[in-house]
Design a binder for these strands. Structure first.
Length: 778
DNA sequence: GGCCAATGTCATGTT
DNA sequence: TAAACATGACATTGG
């Protein structure tokens, strides 16, 4: 709850208030107290971990906005952007407003990112945010929008009829203004400051200052809206002069709502905004169709049967677009966007490649049916195929203790096993195991060996019930995916694990040797060194793909960087890995190395680059430069001792310089050693982890096999029992009377013949055979 | 301001 | 014995 409060910032509150004012019920408590994890996860969407990544991206790409990652305004920024994106998505997909409202309220910054769960909020937000940066120039976009957006509405099932040809010049001007407003950084940034915005709102509420803007919006509602709008001096955007009163709540259209929201979040997507505004203006005839709007607004997504699309279709569209927007960020978005033929509405409006497959079905189902799908994963086909009755029916076979089972399996007197007590009369503890074995030749030797193995397992504390429970447990553990039968590659992966251990260790040694002998850059290029973060990504990828086994390629990604961190910084996504620890640096050295000359106030690009390199330099590099060491730290560290001494002898170095050089060499070597050590540790841990997984997989497989054996054994026993009863029941003495089971028993002879012997004799033979295994054990 | 992961550094032991 | 390497422990930094 506390974390949620953090996100109930001003923009969010304003939006919530607006929604409530226009009649949408905002039942925050219901949502907050909702104990439905799937819904929560769907709504929560991104986690802080994900947004952390976005910090990097946004900081790198949205420098113009100047939003510091730690700035409290960043929350407003993300919230507002997400709100805007979702509101804009409303007209395209007819997502009810109430659903958007729920997303807002439920956003939890501490929620975990789930790759399989569709995090709609941030997906839109991040992709759009980056899209802003990579966005094309206005001119191209303008033409694209004019051509395509109205068709988009038609194709996406917008409510209003297509109006592509009805765009007035005012509309186009408005679009242009809004684009500039989005691009314009000056005013928008200020609005994110809460106090500043508060002041602005105060000013806006001042009727004296209420310079009303000329209404440039199309549609009937625009006039009414214009009365309440003020003009942003810098962007030309309309701001709400005052919040509509309670009587006019229902009259506030979605368009007005969007504009109000837009006023609070000037960082909105400029890529699609004009089209969206027009789309909402025309696609949602808010005032002319109040009942429909109300219905749309009040009908949550899960019950949206009135929507032009069914629920699944909406989710699929939404998710596909979000993913494709994300893809677009990573690829050359502009080319995709503007090489798209205008006839393809989807790709035109959403900057999508026309042929990009929409394959979010699974994710969408997980989104809408999250809880169920998770639960379903517990019931793997194998578990379901394992009948519940089998566990229960196995129960009679479960020995009360290990010795009884031993005697059961060891005894060859099947009559004592199969006959019910009332039938054979030998079901007492003493007589039963000692009965002779009439059907001893029925069981295969190999099967008996397996059964004896099962005995060992049982003696270790496992019984069939536990085995079945464990089996179910392992099977249900989708994360481990221990069921070998489920994944065809499990055995091979297990083999790969053992081989990978050697491979990783060998590669480890090779990497360390190369790192010590070769230059840093070469080691970097050869090893493709990345930090631990990439390791985790690789692991996540493996888990996401369901591949439990060790991937030999893993060690390649597991290599640590042995080179100067500054080289890592060349890779933007690894910037956070290459820390520049310049602590403990002597102030003099720092000063002499870092302080720019006074003339450096006007920095050129080269100077900036030099500054950047300076910052990337390590502490020892700074020291070496300060002490005017005439060779590079690479040489100092990596040269062999002889060459190193030779190098030192070539120069006239002071004692302080020599001391520093030796320190640099020692520290540099130790640094590499520490990196090697940590890499080895990590490799060891990971290998152990995989070994554990392999062992667990083997254990689960053995338990499954045991259950299967017990099941087949039970079936065989039943068959033998029925046959025994049938044969015994057909036997007649001289007088034509049946033999008494308490006095006679059937016994298989060694040659396969069946003998009818007295029970006492059978008991004696059973005792003898029971002694033999005991003697063997002794 | 605390937590955590990544990294650097030192001391010490081992090869 | 010196050099290189390994490793635990601690410090620092940035998110």
């Amino acid at each position: 709850m506390l974390s949620l409060k953090k996100y109930l910032t001003e923009g969010l509150l304003q939006f919530t208030i607006l929604l409530s004012l226009i009649g949408v019920r905002v039942d925050v408590d219901t949502y907050l107290t909702s104990q439905l994890p799937p819904l929560r996860e769907i709504i929560l969407g991104p986690s802080s971990a994900y947004t952390q990544t976005q910090f990097h991206n946004l900081r790198n790409t949205l420098d113009g906005y100047g939003v510091h990652p730690k700035s409290i305004d960043l929350d407003n920024y993300f919230t507002a952007r997400r709100l805007l994106s979702q509101v804009r998505a409303l007209d395209r997909f007819q997502v009810p407003t109430t659903e958007v409202n729920a997303w807002l309220v439920h956003r939890d910054p501490e929620g975990s990112v789930s790759g399989s769960q569709p995090s709609s909020g941030l997906a839109l937000e991040s992709s759009s945010g980056l899209q802003d940066v990579t966005g094309p120039d206005n001119g191209v976009r303008e033409s694209e929008t004019e051509q395509g957006f109205s068709e988009d509405l038609e194709d996406l099932g917008a409510v209003a009829p297509p109006v592509s040809g009805d765009l007035t010049k005012e509309d186009i001007d408005l679009i242009d203004i809004l684009w500039r407003q989005d691009i314009d950084l000056g005013a928008g940034r200020e609005i994110f400051d809460y106090s500043h915005r508060q002041k602005e709102q105060d000013v806006d509420k001042d009727p004296q200052d209420g310079a009303e803007q000329e209404d440039t919006w199309s549609g009937e509602g625009a006039e009414a809206l214009a009365r309440n709008l003020l003009v942003d001096g810098e962007t030309g955007e309309s701001f709400p002069a005052q919040v509509p009163g309670g009587e006019d709540q229902t009259a506030l259209s979605l368009e007005e709502c969007l504009r109000l929201l837009e006023a609070t979040c000037p960082f909105g997507e400029n890529a699609e905004f004009p089209a969206d505004i027009s789309s909402i203006t025309e696609a949602v005839p808010s005032e002319s169709e109040p009942p429909g709007l109300q219905n749309n607004l009040l009908s949550p997504l899960l019950t949206g049967t009135d929507s032009p699309f069914d629920l699944e279709q909406q989710w699929q569209d939404l998710m596909s677009i979000m993913e494709m927007q994300a893809m677009e960020v990573n690829t050359s978005a502009n080319e995709i966007l503007y090489s798209t033929p205008p006839g393809d509405p989807l790709s035109t409006n959403y900057s999508l490649a026309p042929n990009t497959p929409i394959n979010q079905n699974v994710s969408l189902h997980q989104a809408s049916l999250g809880g169920c799908s998770q639960d379903f994963s517990l019931f793997s086909p194998e578990v379901e195929s394992l009948p519940v009755a089998s566990s229960s029916t196995l129960l009679p076979l479960v020995p009360s203790n290990s010795t009884s089972l031993n005697s059961t399996f060891g005894s060859t007197n099947l009559a004592g096993l199969f006959f019910p007590p009332q039938l054979n009369g030998t079901a007492n503890d003493t007589a039963g195991p000692e009965l002779p074995d009439p059907l001893g030749g029925l069981l295969d030797e190999a099967m008996l060996d397996e059964i004896s193995l099962m005995d060992l397992a049982i003696e270790e504390g496992f019984n069939p019930v536990q085995a079945s429970q464990l089996e179910e447990e392992f099977d249900s553990d989708s994360g481990l995916s221990l069921d070998s039968s489920h994944s065809p590659s499990s055995l091979s992966s297990s083999e790969g694990s053992s081989s990978s251990s050697s491979s990783s260790s060998s590669s480890s040694s090779s990497s360390s040797s190369s790192s010590s002998s070769s230059s840093a850059s070469s080691s970097f290029s050869e090893e493709g060194a990345v930090g631990y973060s990439s390791d985790s990504e690789t692991l996540d990828l493996e888990e996401a793909e369901g591949a439990v086994g060790y991937q030999p390629e893993y060690s390649k990604f597991c290599r640590m960087s042995y080179q100067d961190p500054s080289q890592l910084s060349c890779l933007p996504y690894l910037e956070h890995v290459g820390h520049n620890h310049t602590y403990n640096m002597a102030p003099s050295a720092l000063d002499s190395a870092d302080l720019p000359p006074p003339s450096a106030l006007k920095k050129g690009s080269k100077e900036k680059q030099a500054d950047f390199l300076d910052k990337q330099m390590s502490r020892d590099e700074h020291r070496a430069r300060a002490m005017k060491i005439p060779f590079t730290n690479d040489k100092i560290i990596n040269l062999p001792v002889e060459e190193f001494n030779e190098l030192l002898s070539k120069y006239q170095l002071s004692e302080a310089q020599l001391s520093l050089i030796r320190d640099i060499r020692r520290r540099g070597k130790n640094k590499m050693a520490a990196q090697n050590c940590r890499k080895r540790k990590l490799d060891t841990i990971l290998n152990l982890e995989r070994d554990v997984e392999d062992l667990q997989r083997d254990k689960a497989r053995l338990l499954r096999e045991k259950v299967e054996f017990l099941r087949s054994l039970r079936q065989m026993k039943q068959k033998v029992q029925s046959l025994y009863q049938e044969v015994f029941g057909r036997l007649r003495d001289e007088n034509g009377r049946p033999y008494s089971p308490s006095q006679y028993a059937l016994q298989y002879a060694g040659d396969g013949s069946v003998l009818l012997i007295p029970r006492t004799l059978a008991d004696q033979q059973a005792r003898r055979q029971e002694r033999k295994p005991k003697d063997r054990r002794k």
